[in-house]
Nucleic acid binder design. Sequence first.
DNA 1: GTTCCGCATGAATCGATAG
DNA 2: ACTATCGATTCATGCGGAA
Lengths: 270, 270
Amino acid sequence: MQDVDRILLGDCRRVLPELPANSVDLIVTSPPYADSRKKTYGGIHPDEYVAWFLPISAELLRVLKPTGTFILNIKEKVVDGERHPYVIEMILEMRRQGWLWTEEFIWHKKNCYPGKWPNRFRDAWERCLQFNKQKRFHMYQDAVMVPMGDWAKTRLRKLSETDKRRDESRVRSGFGKNVSNWVGRSLVYPTNVLHLATETSNRQHSATFPLELPSWFIKLFTQEGDLVLDPFIGSGTTAVAARRLGRHYLGIEVQPEYVEQANKALSAEG
Amino acid sequence: MQDVDRILLGDCRRVLPELPANSVDLIVTSPPYADSRKKTYGGIHPDEYVAWFLPISAELLRVLKPTGTFILNIKEKVVDGERHPYVIEMILEMRRQGWLWTEEFIWHKKNCYPGKWPNRFRDAWERCLQFNKQKRFHMYQDAVMVPMGDWAKTRLRKLSETDKRRDESRVRSGFGKNVSNWVGRSLVYPTNVLHLATETSNRQHSATFPLELPSWFIKLFTQEGDLVLDPFIGSGTTAVAARRLGRHYLGIEVQPEYVEQANKALSAEG
DNA sequence: GTTCCGCATGAATCGATAG
DNA sequence: ACTATCGATTCATGCGGAA
């Protein structure tokens, strides 16, 4: 546990083998999309994407604890007017590697990229694939409970405005026991559809991963003190999320500029 | 064109070969989900689902016009704690058949089935897979434009409640031209995420498929007078949607009770 | 005619029980 | 051991009756 809370510089295909087996509680990552970030990983062509990723997922399978979870945020590109099948091929191949494809969460991007095409609407969702090593894994559902759908309409009607405000801030802070006792029936478990906006004010980082996304999965699948790994950490979003939630983190990034950026962001956290 | 606007009784594996090639503008269907039980279509086991469906999709490829579209509403079940891969295997096999996997729409089910499990949240989405025969297909995007996000906040604030309701029903009825002239700048194109509730309390429709779902795709991919096919039409939802929108329809259903139900629903349309 | 409240109802999933 | 059935869990929706 001495080598955590760091951003490691290097290609994760080289760095991952140096990590001990069964040591990570959660892997959350958004790998470079096919054909993008050409300079870094050589601009993987969609047709070669699966072959490129499988050795990495094999290492991830090794370093993950048996009770751990792997969340893969990914979306297939349109190639020649068609959704390229590399993502679904990857799911099948990873199952052959030994991964269990436990669930597929949908990240609904409330503010998706604008544009207009004659044969296609704007793409407003991405996959967050959940993989596990075994059927029994750690999941802390209470940590991500949300206000009930008609909460504001019904229960809160009788509360004063100040009560309501106090209530909401408590709910948002989220650390549950007293809150869930107090508002108890006002909180429900979420579904497998996440409604999050992309971060507009983000800098030059290509993979715009809102902080909320890794935060949600970190709360759901880890406890304080657990270790979160992101093998394509980019500007450090996952590490910041982990740190804010009191989890240990480990990031891998091949581009020195990103490593620097991530370390700067982490220092700013104090 | 004389044999349309009917619900055909029979297994679609037998009925489809009797239909002429290149005659259908849109196929929208929600096939029976994989089930261990043996009622309709012999209760297809998830492991056999792909083999069962491929001959059907081959026939669908034959009857669809080159400019037509096939929308397949489906969702994989959980089997032994894991999402079963039959849906994604089917996508790959259908591509080998010659289908283009153009897009994947997400139907976000606002009212999903309740429940609580230790390792899983409620499933609130289904796939609406779009397949085509060629890269150029008919798409009428203007027919499904929706009010802008802040529409209710800005424009509608000044309208009375009755005006608002009338307004919404106009938009929902969807015949675009006059509406888009009238509210003009208030309408935007939708994304590939649909937010619809399932119809729960509609008695005789055990329909899982809300009327809005086929309606949306019918408006998007056909014009008035075009032909819509549903090879697993069930209680006739797709036919009702087509009829209301002035499209011809053709339904296939293996269970006589459903055929009767569908015809009754269609008669009620007048 | 309107708003409000109560209630039944789901393309679900898991775990236990029974054959 | 492996499959089939059943009960428990849980919440957004829209209907119907009531004020």
